[in-house]
Design a protein around this nucleic acid. Sequence first.
RNA 1: GCCACGGUAGUGUAGCCUGGUUAGCACAAGGGACUGUGGAUCCCUUAGCCCGAGUUCAAAUCUCGGCCGUGGCCCCA
Length: 425
Amino acid sequence: MKYSRPRGTRDFLPEEMAARRSVEQRMRRVFVRFGYAEVATPTFEHLELITAKSGEEIVAHLYHFKDKGGRDLALRPELTAPVMRLYVNELQSSPKPLRLYYFGNCFRYERPQAGRYREFWQAGVELIGSSSPEAQAEVIALAKAVLDELGLRNYELHVGSVGVLRKFLEERGIAEGEQCRIMGIIDKGDEEQLEEELLKLGLSEEDRSAIAGVLELKGERSAVVSRAEELLAGREAALNELRELEGILDALESFGVREYTLNLGIARGLDYYTGMVFEIYASKLGAEKQICGGGSYSLAETFGGKPVATSGFAFGFDRIMLALEKDGVELGGEEGAKIMVIPFGEEYLDRAIEISALLRRSVACELEVMRRKVKKALSYASSKGIDYVVLVGEETERGRVLLKDMRSGEQREVDIEELERELAG
RNA sequence: GCCACGGUAGUGUAGCCUGGUUAGCACAAGGGACUGUGGAUCCCUUAGCCCGAGUUCAAAUCUCGGCCGUGGCCCCA
């Protein structure tokens, strides 16, 4: 092998590509059905755009480079920041809400493993301009609608809120920067470190156990909510945030989404999430089983725009493909009948070319270009799954060809003028 | 960045432990037997030891390093 692929990248062969396109197209249809319009952004952006959103640390996980003008650029590691930049640059004064969807490849310099590649694909949406419970619920319902449309069965939806905890901390006089740090620690799941940090911030024993208690809450809505209310008794700001979440859940249930886990332990480690967050896991996948992540956030101001409430999510497209496969979902891309034109020898080649060109006005057909004997050409057609073969020979002098049905083996003479109609039907 | 296992024609494999003929087999691909008819048979052809260094008279085989793959840890915007 002379040249190998760069690490963590993949080639997609025709069969796999057909399956990917079919899934992609069905995803798009659902996005469109919900009123979302597609946008696309560059494959690379200024490095600062990425670091503005995610901090300097992530440079270690980026493909970044200097171009010939000395500019620091990076291949996009995700699409939320580019899309919000696009919004700030071009769409701030368009009617609200703005519903955008995207689909594209992203790049991260990380160690490849199951469901993790250095080049991968994301599909997602942003609903910009509304902070209403129904807007936030809509994006969750949309994510679920896509998965259901695709026929995925084994997945779990977890809904939570980073707002509850943020308000709790805010009420205790803890600054936003500190809140973010705490959320990051929660996301890592390091309980000892969390306890330590909270102690340093001067939180009482009671506060600390309330936080630890809330973070463990996970399960059916009413049980989680009533327990959270007990733990948060007297913390009005946090309770308000809980009620806000309940409003979203009410709307979500109106959308018909009733199967979910209320999980107050989701922290999403990201500084820009403000309230509702959600994640979807495909239970059959391995270590990398999260197939979707999203929530409500405020990012426009980070990129120099006016603050605007936004909800959105991103699917890990490759992981969804893996999940569908593990679920045994059939992904055959639908195609029309396959047709092939074969000449009886070189003297009929020109005529065969003309006939194939004629047919292509309405159907897909391929021409025998190997100058093979009919026997070999038919053998090829057979192994390729060709449905109909048009044999071009002496009959062509009477304006006719032989049409052979490869399934039944039956064959008859047909006028060339009628051929197109025969095959289109 | 760390750990485990792996890497032989296009694909799947035998050989490796116990260094030593032309590295074997199956399928696939191209051609032919069959000059106007496929999914059958037979024949021929193409094509391989991941890369590099070391040990040795001799390395696919043993040792080390690298690259790549698979899975896991860390991380996961």
